Simulated scan of single mutants.
Amino acid sequence: MDTEEHKLIEHPTICRGSSFPPLEKCTNCCSPALYHCPFCPPECFEPTRRRKLLLHLESHRKFACSIGGYTVHKCSFGCRRKPHYHCLHCEATLIRRRDFVNHVPLCLEALKTKHQNQSKLQRFMVTDDTNGDDICDSEDSHEESSSHFLNPAASGMSTRGSPNSSKGSQRVQTHMEKPQDCDEFYFMNLVKIFKRLTPQKKTDVRLRIERILFEAEFQ
């Protein structure tokens, strides 16, 4: 993403290239008609003739910053108490030239990262939506096979004559890895609630959890 892929901040002090904004005579408050500085209010620079205004604008050019194909002039309007620069990509205003020059590349890099993360999230959500039915079908088949494995009677298998069947069943339920930390302990407790949900609800909960974790990691 370059500076043209997103909307730049619109402000009269941000000019494309090295040109000044169009200079036009004021017919509202000046009599006779005079020229206003596009970067200063009348309180800071009184409206004057075109020749004097051009000389004044040259002083603005000395303190301007050229960056990314744009020239940012110092703003003397009432945005802040002191003359300042407006960032091209965000609402930040900076007084010192050095701070402004350092801020703009970092601001643009942050926008690139945000744009990339949003694209990843959109692709992730589209993939989840298209695979939702497959997840649900696999969940049904998995639960069916699991129920036959844990409950031999449901699959027609006889448990008679097998003296170790009760012990084996007990081992299936108790031989589980113990949680290693508080995070594992927390999620293992959630499993009990999760298993009581219907297959469709399980799929929906999975998608929500994955989206929350993805957003927490990349945003």
Rank of each mutant, 00 (worst) to 15 (best):
E215W: 02
H142W: 04
D99T: 06
K202I: 00
R160F: 10
V72S: 00
C87S: 04
D133L: 10
T203V: 13
M176F: 03
V72Q: 04
R98T: 14
Y70L: 13
D2N: 12
E58F: 01
L111F: 09
N151I: 08
T3E: 14
L54Q: 13
E58C: 02
G17S: 12
N131Q: 13
N189S: 14
K114N: 15
M188K: 08
S31R: 10
K82P: 01
K62D: 00
R97S: 10
P163Y: 04
C75I: 03
A110L: 07
K178V: 10
L190A: 06
E210C: 08
E210T: 09
D2T: 15
T93G: 05
K120W: 06
G156Q: 00
E58S: 07
E24T: 09
A110F: 09
R50T: 02
R51V: 03
F63R: 11
C30T: 15
H89E: 10
K202W: 01
D204I: 13
L34P: 02
P22T: 06
K25H: 04
T71D: 05
C107G: 03
R51C: 07
T48W: 05
R49C: 14
M157H: 08
I14R: 05
P41L: 09
F45S: 09
P179F: 00
F63Y: 07
L53N: 03
C75H: 01
S76K: 08
G69P: 00
S146I: 02
H6P: 14
N117K: 08
S166G: 03
S138K: 12
A216E: 04
D204R: 05
P199C: 03
S19R: 15
I193C: 14
T93E: 15
D137Q: 04
A110G: 10
P179E: 01
F63S: 06
K192D: 13
Q118E: 15
P199I: 01
D129M: 05
R16M: 13
F100K: 00
A33R: 11
I67N: 03
N28D: 15
L23G: 05
C37Q: 08
Y85L: 01
T198D: 11
T48G: 02
P21I: 01
D137F: 05
L8P: 00
Q170H: 13
K195Q: 08
G168S: 04
S147A: 02
S146L: 11
C29R: 12
E177Y: 02
H148S: 08
V191C: 07
S138R: 12
K112C: 12
M125T: 13
K114Q: 15
S19W: 11
C107A: 08
F100D: 00
D128W: 04
G69M: 04
G132L: 07
L190T: 12
C40G: 02
S155W: 05
H36C: 10
K74Y: 06
C30H: 07
T27W: 13
R206Q: 05
V101E: 03
Y35R: 00
R49Y: 11
E210Q: 11
S158P: 00
P83H: 05
G161L: 00
R51N: 09
I95T: 12
D99E: 09
R61V: 14
P47C: 10
E24A: 07
T113I: 15
Q122Y: 07
H11V: 11
F77H: 08
E46Q: 14
G156P: 00
N151C: 00
P47E: 01
T13G: 03
R50P: 01
P42L: 10
T130Y: 07
T174F: 11
I67F: 03
L111V: 09
E43M: 10
M1H: 09
